[in-house]
Amino acid sequence: MTTTPTLPVPVPVQSGRAAKLAVRAEAAKTRLSSPWASLIAVVIAVLWTVPTVGLLVNSTRGEPGPTTSGWWHLWGVGSGFTLSNYINAWNGNGGTPLSDYILNSVVITLPAVVMPITLALLAAYAFAWIDFRGRNLLFVAVFVMQIVPIQVALIPLNTVYVRFGLSSSFWSIWLSHTIFGLPLAIFLLHNFMKEIPPSLVEAARVDGAGHVRIFTKVLLPLLVPAIAAFGIFQFLWVWNDLLVALTFSGDTTRPITAGIQQLTTQFSSSGNILPSAAILAMVVPLIVFLSLQRFFVRGLLAGSVKG
């Protein structure tokens, strides 16, 4: 890239003049990001937030508010402010209770996060620290698997699950998410693992530690941020997934996304609980996301962008 400024840039001498310049630059910056810039930023922020606010308001409007008037009428229509929509959604209001779907989502998500992390940790360790013939070739093969769209794998996988008698069980969903998450997990953990100084591993070796000891005692504690980064990715991916859910889940294993998708098709009967159900579906990923945001951004910057 010819237009990219090249490094390294000489470090400026920290004289009084330079300091004054810096102050002036800072002042110019704050001045220029003034009225118009702020206005545009506020407009974008408002545009991005209004739809969500609308849903939030709708979720607390009593019957028949959400199905007969816009959310900006607030609580003036129908039976006013209420939280009963949430209770009705949770209990199903005659249909399948949302609590069932959320339970299924939990049951699906936890193993689907633990399994790829465990497998990928082992593989990434071997790729980073054990020398063997064909290692680079195999690693490139795994790396390349990241580009395979999951659509390509769904139908043959389903054939295999049916053959084993696993179709529409949790097992088929766990296995699918594990397989689809592995290439990214290995890539990410391998990257982090290679950044650990070799001297650390060498020292442990000299002390007589075997591969397993090195792996569990030396590397694992250092890898916590990387594991968290992939873990939150996989969690959000699995919890928010619809395609794998619709393809492999059955009546008793349907997760929350598929449940909400069904609700949207029955607007006349469940329009009042749809907003609160959608909010309930967002709560868990939002909590996970907000509490682990640091790791999420780090993972994003390390190249974990999955589609």
Binding site: V50, P51, T52, G54, L55, N58, P66, T67, T68, S69, G70, W71, W72, H73, L236, W239, N240, D241, L242, T257, I260, Q261, T264, L274, P275, A278, A281, M282, P285, L286, V288, F289, L290
Partner: peptide
Amino acid sequence: MAISMVAASVIWKYVYFQPAPEGQPEIGL
């Protein structure tokens, strides 16, 4: 980014909601 596309679709359903029948208030923003 953190919520599912299904939830996002529900959010936007109330923006794009179909026109209300004659004489009734609109549901979609």
